[in-house]
Design a protein around this nucleic acid. Structure first.
Ligand code: TTP
Ligand code: MG
Ligand code: MG
Length: 1046
DNA sequence: CATAGTGGCGCC
DNA sequence: GGCGCCAA
């Protein structure tokens, strides 16, 4: 067993600062695209994805570009979006177990990443919708191919490509190729670079151009295979690539050349740099009195280190010069799987049964996802962290406690959490009660991590066909509707009946209600047996795999568990040709066995061999196949020990050759009986912990002219001033100076490959890349068309059903029941609420038997209100309401200073906006005044009264308090009822929102440069929207002696 | 209450 | 291990 605990954030040595090409691919308005794909009628219409929808139409978490054009933004409420854009379609995130469920977006993100991964295994997923790709090797490979004439780059096909600092991509091509052909010693592009760096920097621009053509193909593949559009940033490191990506969206890609970093940085707000978008960035700006990234260059490294610390100082010093040494750490899967839920305000948890209920809901989701993770990723989480926020003495206290994760069963996970919170709370139960919780709970989160790779026995085989399994399961769920009995696979899916045993076993193992992790693991040997012994027709014939030394046997291939898929195979062929352009004739397109084998082995390779990215796929294929066969006992009978040794040594030798290093230990041990496939794979990876950029620079020494030759300009008119018209493509040459690693491996391997080539030589398709480019080109045109279109929207007459009105009317009718303070306002589900109310004394709704739902509130005989002795207001006479009220007093007191500072901060921001942002400044000031006027308070609240939206108790509260103190008032902006003492803060909230809205309108997307006003917007935006979380995090022990208020 | 739910990583 | 920061 090995813990997949890879140290992260490794850095390159400074000497290799300009050696890489890094791509950042980010999906455009991702969740929206996912929804559009599921419901194509939404395409083109303004649309947003919301979470929940009871309160003001739900919170918007993604907005498509049609809706953005109308001013709709993330953070808005559904209702606000409707104001901005009445025809907007609001799609809800599915609610499962009464909480938002993001599964479909995770799945979609994975689909995309699988496509991306085909282009390089040096892929680091950075979020659900984006990934960094280190495509240095791919670029170098293509560079070499251009050098020998086997690839022709056609810049006119980069219509969707932008280059920072250049008016057009054509201009970029012309400039950098000219400069490369006729280097000017004092070209001003290089004025900021040291003499010795200039040749590297000059080459980097050409490499970026090559990278752009690859990026185009990658994005095309993503679109073709997933239907999703994305944008990309193309530069020399992660920070620059990320920055570039955001400059042109959607469906565009942006090159950020080293030579134009300074120009960009001179007006680029510091906050635009990843890592400087929040407090630290603000701190840097404030301490140094600067705004733009470029201004950092005026400080010495020592100065920066002194002000911040050594690490940050050096980082800042480098970043402002466009240098970022952090490597792309290959990682496909999340390191933790978690879920959480807030219980704000009245929704807070005040009874153990409710707590248990929610812990079970969360644990069930975690459990489900962890079990799926076993199948998908062949690993098992060993550790869990439980996060919770409690309100203690009117302060929100956040705590985190961890425990070993010994079972994936929900009740065990929930039980562990329950123990943890009890053990870490001084007074858990309210004195005198064994059901009421002393400190209301406002947040629960469970997360599982510290994954260990499972023993390979069947586990890895699962990994191999995890995709198929998942897809079949999905299909099954869709086709069979809700009558699925997951315990009985035979009833699940007629499609699956014809499928392999292993799928059934898999499904069963995952969904069987009472199986524990331990059991699941025990089942694996059995499952494996079923897979291996599965009855299949056995033909015996030899199959040859390109780049491989192993004589594959068709019989063995047939036993491999991955289903042959025509579509996938075509991808694999493309992929294979792409990775091996010089072997483009190697792969016989009609040889299903070959394709299938590669599929299998590449699946394995892609999921577990990230660190082997430098290795020829043929070799990976052999290694993986060999181990797989060995592991599966497929070849056991036929393969003698000598053969085994020979093969393993062969693979070992070739790995060594590929990497120019000696593995620390022989991989022959991988074939020991005890050795597992997973361990084998990770050991290989460990052994191949090579310097990825080893010897990179020298590869480019002599390859300049010929590569330029192969940047062909077919449409010089498009390129405008393109001066270069090239003639015939040079014939492929045997060029020993060609840099690419795969081409420079030992002759024996090359010979082998050549031999294979000559044997399998069939259809040569020289134009495969051209095809891709053409596709890309067309997209580019259509995008532009789309972009220039007026966003005239069809107004749909779909009625907006107002759940609240209907619901509240019913509540009104049920005058005799006083329940309100317990009925969740953010549990939007109508049915749920109705059940709660109308049936709550007879139904078995979980709440009905809980302590906190049996509080005095339900007893009409008791006094309804008590007087607050601080403000004299009438408060509902239940512990929660009292506590909430007290909380408001407390919050008010402690936040007064904060709010003052906050308002001062706003004023400062607005008044300090200067010259280039004059426009904004004026507007902001105006707005500020406008809002202030609005704040002038109306005492006649009755005109804002909306009885239909009030609950019984709320109505009562109004009636009770209207004559005396204005305990509850109505905000004249949103018409919400707000407690009097909270009104100032509430109005600040509106002020912030209004400002943000106004500023959003002014945020005109820029193409090739970033204007300062964008800065002002962002800074303001973040300052305004990021209100201080009102949660304090302290060791719980700090509150052991705190008195309990209630 | 006034995005919420989620994930990675650094510091101590 | 627990907490805080940062981000999509
Ligand atoms: C920023 C952010 C994103 N998300 C989700 C929804 C987004 O669709 C998804 C990706 O985030 P982003 O990539 O930041 O945004 P986006 O893909 O919606 O739009 P674009 O990249 O074109 O600007 O992650 C959240 O749930 N919460 C957030 O705070
Ligand atoms: Mg995105
Ligand atoms: Mg993103």
């Amino acid at each position: 067993m090995s813990t997949n605990n890879v140290t992260s954030k490794k850095c390159l040595p400074m000497s290799k600062k300009y050696d890489r090409i890094v791509l950042l691919v980010d999906m455009d308005c991702f969740y929206c695209q996912v929804e559009e794909k599921l419901n194509p009628s939404l395409k083109g219409k303004p649309m947003a994805v919301v979470q929940y929808n009871a309160w003001k139409g739900g919170g918007i978490i993604a907005v498509n570009y049609a809706a953005r054009a109308k001013g709709v933004t993330r953070h808005m409420r559904g209702e606000e979006a409707k104001v901005q854009c009445p025809e907007i379609e609001l799609i809800s995130v599915p609610s499962v177990r009464e909480k938002a469920d993001l599964t479909k977006y995770r799945d979609a993100g994975k689909d995309v990443a699988i496509v991306l991964q085909r282009f390089t295994t040096v892929l680091q997923r950075a979020s659900v919708d984006e990934a960094y790709l280190d495509i240095t090797d791919v670029v170098n490979k293509r560079f070499a191919a251009m050098n020998d004439g086997t690839f022709i780059l056609k810049p006119q096909e980069l219509l969707n490509t932008y280059a920072v600092g250049f008016p057009s991509i054509g201009n970029f091509v012309t400039t950098v190729t000219n400069d490369f052909l006729y280097p000017q010693p004092h070209e001003k592009m290089y004025k900021n670079f040291s003499e010795e760096d200039i040749p590297t920097v000059r080459r980097s621009n050409i490499r970026l151009l090559v990278a752009a053509s690859i990026a185009s193909e990658i994005r095309s593949a993503v679109f073709k295979e997933t239907g999703y559009e994305c944008s990309a940033g193309i530069s020399l490191n992660k920070v620059l690539a990320k920055l570039a990506c955001g400059l042109n969206k959607p469906n565009k890609q942006t090159i950020l050349p080293l030579t134009h970093v300074n120009e960009l940085f001179s007006t680029l707000p510091l906050s635009k740099i990843q890592g400087l978008g929040a407090k630290f960035g603000e701190d840097v700006c404030q301490q140094l009195g600067i705004r733009y990234v470029g201004q950092l260059q005026t400080f010495t490294e020592a100065e920066l280190q002194r002000k911040f610390d050594d690490k940050n100082g050096t980082w800042l010093y480098n970043i402002c010069r466009g240098i970022d040494l952090e490597i792309v750490t290959p990682r496909f899967y999340a390191k933790s799987i978690g879920c959480c839920k807030k219980f704000p305000g009245r929704n807070c948890i005040t009874g153990v049964k409710t707590l248990h209920h929610w812990l079970m809901e969360l644990a069930n989701e975690i459990s489900e996802r962890l079990k799926e993770d076993i199948v998908q990723n062949n690993r098992c989480a060993k550790h869990m962290v439980f996060n919770f926020v409690q309100e203690i003495s009117n302060v929100d206290i956040s705590s985190s406690r961890s425990a070993p994760l010994k079972s994936y069963e929900a009740d065990i996970i929930a039980g562990t959490c329950m123990e943890l919170i009890k053990a870490n709370t001084k007074v858990f139960f309210r004195p005198g009660s064994n059901g009421a919780i002393n400190n209301p709970i406002k947040f629960l989160g469970i997360s599982a991590g510290k994954f260990e790779t499972l023993s390979s026995k069947s586990g890895t085989i699962q990994t191999m066909f995890a995709q198929q399994t998942a897809k079949l399961q999905k299909l099954a769920n869709e086709n069979i509707s809700s009558t699925i009995n997951s315990e009985n696979v035979e009833t699940v899916n007629p499609l699956m009946k014809s499928k392999d045993m292993d799928l059934k076993v898999c499904k069963k193992a995952v969904t069987e209600p009472n199986n524990t992790v331990e059991k699941l693991f025990k089942n694996q040997s059995e499952r494996k047996k079923q897979i291996i012994d599965g009855d299949r027709s056995a033909l015996t014939s030899q199959v040859h795999i390109e780049g491989s030394d192993i004589p594959y046997d068709k019989k063995d291939i047939d036993k491999l568990p991955v289903e042959y898929s025509k579509e996938m195979s075509e991808c694999v062929i493309d992929d294979y040709k792409y990775i091996n352009p010089e072997h483009k004739d190697v792969c016989p397109p009609n040889n299903n066995d070959t394709i299938k084998t590669i599929n299998n082995c590449r699946t394995l390779a892609s999921s577990q061999l990230a660190a082997m990215s430098q290795v020829h796929p043929g070799i990976v294929c052999d290694a993986a196949y060999f181990i797989l066969c060995k592991e599966s006992n497929v070849v056991k009978d036929r393969m003698k020990n000598e053969d085994e040794k020979q093969y393993s040594e062969n693979i070992c030798d070739r790995l060594k050759n590929e990497n120019s290093i000696t593995p620390q230990k022989s991989i022959t041990h991988l074939f020991d009986k005890q050795s597992t496939l997973s361990n084998s794979i990770s050991d290989i990876a460990d052994n191949l912990n090579i310097s990825a950029y080893h010897d990179k620079s020298k590869h480019f020494e002599n390859s300049g002219l010929s590569i330029i030759k192969n940047i062909r300009s077919n449409k010089s008119d498009y390129l405008g001033s393109a001066k270069l018209q090239f003639t015939e493509i040079s014939k492929p040459v045997e060029d020993n100076t060609v840099a690419y690693r795969w081409s420079s491996v030992k002759n024996e391997v090359c010979k082998d490959i050549n031999k294979v080539e000559s044997v399998n030589n069939t259809n040569i398709n020289n134009n495969s890349s051209d095809c891709k480019n053409n596709i890309n080109l067309e997209q580019g045109f259509s995008d532009n068309t789309l972009e220039n279109m007026n966003h005239t929207q069809i107004i749909t007459d779909k009625e907006q059903v107002n759940d609240n009105c209907e619901l509240e009317q019913l509540i009104q009718d049920l005058k005799t029941i006083q329940n309100e303070s317990k009925t969740s306002s953010e549990q939007p589900n109508k049915k749920r609420k109705l059940d709660d109310i109308s049936d709550n004394f007879k139904s078995k709704d979980y709440r009905s038997e809980y302590v906190e739902f049996a509080l005095p509130t339900f007893n009409t005989e008791l006094e309804l209100y008590i007087k607050c002795d601080k403000c004299g207001a009438n408060i509902f006479n239940n512990p929660e309401a009292i506590q909430t009220h007290n909380d408001h007093h407390f919050a008010h007191e402690i936040s007064q200073q904060q709010r003052h500072e906050y308002r001062e901060h706003l004023r400062m921001k607005i008044s300090s906006a200067k010259s280039p942002t004059n426009n904004i400044k004026t507007k902001a000031k105006k707005l500020f005044k406008k809002i202030n006027v609005k704040q002038s308070w109306s005492t006649d609240i009755t005109k804002f009264l909306k009885p239909s939206t009030l609950t019984v108790s709320e109505q009562k509260a109004i009636n009770e308090s209207a004559s005396s103190e204005s305990f509850v008032e109505f905000c004249n902006i949103c018409k919400d009822q707000i407690k009097g003492e909270d009104m100032t803060e509430h109005r600040d909230y509106h002020l912030a929102k209004e400002l943000q809205k106004e500023l959003n309108k002014l945020d005109v997307p820029k193409v090739n440069s970033v204007k300062p006003k964008s800065n002002t917007h962002k800074n303001l935006n973040s300052s305004l929207t990021l209100r201080k979380p009102n949660v304090i995090s302290k060791p719980i022990t700090a509150f052991f002696t705190q008195p309990n208020d209630i």
